[in-house]
Each structure stands twice: as structure tokens, then as C-alpha cells.
Design a protein around this nucleic acid. Structure first.
Lengths: 192, 192
DNA sequence: GTGAAAAATTAGGACCGCCTAATTACTGGA
DNA sequence: TCCAGTAATTAGGCGGTCCTAATTTTTCAC
């Protein structure tokens, strides 16, 4: 019945599981119980139990003792959360003076509470950006996400000048340091 | 231990109870179980159970079969939620194009998720407003709330011209109607 | 190929926040 | 004053999400 309107409301927990599983199972690969548990800072049995419920709900496929993969529906829900998260981060930085090291935590809580409508208003207010402050691509409302390709800085030969695409660090201290030396998406750096 | 830092984190449910109890027990009066249940759209036994937990936590005082009243701590928490709610409403209207009939629902969800810091940034971005879009006063961060005095429009004698202070309607349809005839806080109306 | 370590699951329990049904306490009219 | 109606509480349950302890399955090194 709710399938008709697109998606039944998911709990915060479920939303968190889906996001983590999405990021742990790229390209048709599979996420393990213990990796999920580690990322969510939960015990493995808790994750086992949730996996059972989620696969019964059709959000993921589970091969016992092997791993877990999102279904199309699970992936859609995960991308919806990632879109929310990244638009929130972009908005907080652009409009409310947040620094990129501080937005993650705030967005992590807000992403469960904002309505679809508010997210779209925020996106629109920003001119529908396609990346968040860290350079991560923002999925479209339809669930399409750009596969961005970038070469790790470490692999750039000395002497070349390149543009920073994204910064995958998560640690606030590290992010502050990187910002302090100007190492942010869009910056041009010469490798020495 | 958490009392030292001001307040332990409250659950969404608890926050909702405190808000409702605050609004139902003005001036040292008491709120009844059934009124609370009605406002929260919960069963009376659920409310009874929660009241027990909240009074054990020191957030309210309960005289069985008589009613309930917030403690200083409960009142502080309630005012914190009201501040959040009203700043959110003000921000959504001022900065994201919401109309005053649509903000309530959004703020009701966000108020549980925003950080103190975000609320203060929003307030600051708006120049620390002292009322929300409905004219309701916004408590300060310290928990002080303006007692606004206004005369119901119905009590104004015909022929007088007065300024609308606040509009206590909650129904979105009614609010849209009132907005359509210009009946919003700040408007000057002549009573006929 | 086997046995120990690692990973995953099952078993069993707790807490929160809700419910309905049953009971108890209060209140106001005859 | 007493009793009926109303309000509140207690009793007992349930789903969701977490936990620890015990068990099972898999994997890997020898």
C-alpha cells in the first residue's frame, strides 16, 4: 500500500543501516556483518538481527555467513539518505557559516528529520549543487549518482598541477588542517 | 553526572511530552493525564506510564489522580524545545520560502534533531527575532519568555483600529485563509 | 585434511514507548 | 450520603533495537 506512494517510512536505525551498507558494498559486492557492526558501533548480533528484518522487508539480500547486498529498493532508500546528507552539508556551509569539518555530525542527525520538500528547497536555494563541501557527488532526487573519477593525490607525478576534486577525510582535525593549507575541492595544487 | 553539563539528552517522546505539558499547565496550574493524552494523541495509560518515568527523572511533579506540573528542570527543557520550534519556523519562512501554514509540521520534526549551535546560528542569521511567524514569542536561550499581552480581536469595539499581535490558529486551511485576507502579525485592522 | 581462530548466528534478556482490558479513585447529582 | 459516570492507574502485551553469552559455520595455516 505504501509501496504505491514510493516508500514506507523507515526508522532512523534502518536509514543508518542502509547508508552504511551502501557505502560498504560497492559495485555488486557484499558487506559483512562485522564491517557493518564496526561502522555503526554496534555489536555483531544486533546487526545480524537487523539484517534478518531488513531482508524480510525486501531492502537487502542476505546470504547467511556470506554477506549482504542492497536490493533496488534498499539502494534507492540509501541514495535518498545520502542526497539528504550532502545537501544538508552544502546548505549548512553555504548559508549558515559552518565549516566543512563540523557539518557531518549535524547532517547526520538532520537527515532523518527533514522532509523531502525541505531538502528540495535547500537544494534549490543553492542552485542545485552537484557536490557537497567535501566534493562528494550529490545523488539526484531520482536516485542517480555521478560516478566521479579522480586520481589520488599520491599517484600524481611530481611537477604536475591538478585540481582537487574531493577530500575523503572524515576526521574533523584533519579536515581543519587540510582547510588551513587550502586543500579543498576546487583548489589547484602543484605536486612537488 | 550529566546534570553537570546542564541536561542529559532527552528522547523525542519525552521532549514532546514536556512541550505539551508546558502549554497545558500555565501559571502554576496543573495538567491532567487525559488532556495530555488528547494533545499527543496517545492513550491515557501510555501517558500515565510516561508521567511516572518523567517524575522519577525529576522533570515533573505528579500528584496521583490530580495532575502534573513541570519542575524547574522540566520547564527549562520545555522552553528549550519551544525556542527551537519557533526559531525553526521563523527561519523556514524567512529563508526557505515556507508559508506560515506549512512550517509547523516541519519544525515539529526538526526541533528534535537540531543542535543548540544550529539553532543559535539560525537565530543570528535572522537577527535574533523575538517572535515566530504566528507572533508567538521566542524564549531566549537562557529560558526567559516574554509574556505577551494582547486582546482577542473579538473583544475590540467596532470602529477601532488595532495591530495584530499573534494568530493562534493551528489549522493550515484556516491559516491560509487568514493570510489571504492579510490577517497576519503586524497588520493593522479596523474593526467594523 | 584438520583444528584453531575468526566470523556469524542463535538464545535469551532489557528498555522504551506504545497498546487494550481491567481495576481503582474521584466527583457531582439525587 | 451514596452511586453512577468519569478519570486515572495497574496489569499484561507487543514491536523495535539494543545487549551478552553460547553456539555454529567458515576460513586458513599447517
Amino acid at each position: 500500500m505504501n509501496a504505491a506512494i514510493g516508500h514506507e517510512p523507515l526508522t532512523r536505525s534502518v536509514e543508518d543501516y542502509l547508508k552504511v551498507i551502501y557505502s560498504l558494498s560497492p559495485e555488486g559486492r557484499t558487506a559483512s556483518t562485522s564491517d557493518i557492526a564496526h561502522r555503526l558501533e554496534l555489536s555483531a548480533p544486533s546487526v545480524s538481527g537487523m539484517i534478518k528484518r531488513l531482508s524480510e522487508q525486501g531492502l537487502l539480500e542476505h546470504i547467511p555467513y556470506k554477506g549482504v547486498q542492497l536490493t533496488a529498493e534498499g539502494r534507492r532508500a540509501a541514495l535518498r539518505m545520502i542526497r539528504r546528507h550532502r545537501i544538508l552539508e552544502a546548505y549548512l556551509v553555504a548559508r549558515l557559516g559552518y565549516t566543512w569539518d563540523a557539518v557531518h555530525e549535524e547532517a547526520d542527525r538532520l537527515e532523518h528529520a527533514v522532509s523531502e520538500g525541505l531538502i528540495e528547497r535547500m537544494a534549490e536555494a543553492l542552485g542545485n549543487p552537484d557536490a557537497d563541501p567535501h566534493g562528494e557527488p550529490i545523488p539526484t532526487a531520482e536516485g542517480w549518482i555521478e560516478e566521479i573519477e579522480a586520481t589520488p593525490l599520491a599517484e600524481i607525478p611530481a611537477g604536475e598541477t591538478v585540481e582537487i576534486r574531493r577530500v575523503t577525510a572524515g576526521d574533523p582535525d584533519r579536515l581543519r588542517y587540510l582547510a588551513s593549507i587550502g586543500l579543498q575541492p576546487g583548489a589547484l595544487v602543484a605536486v612537488v
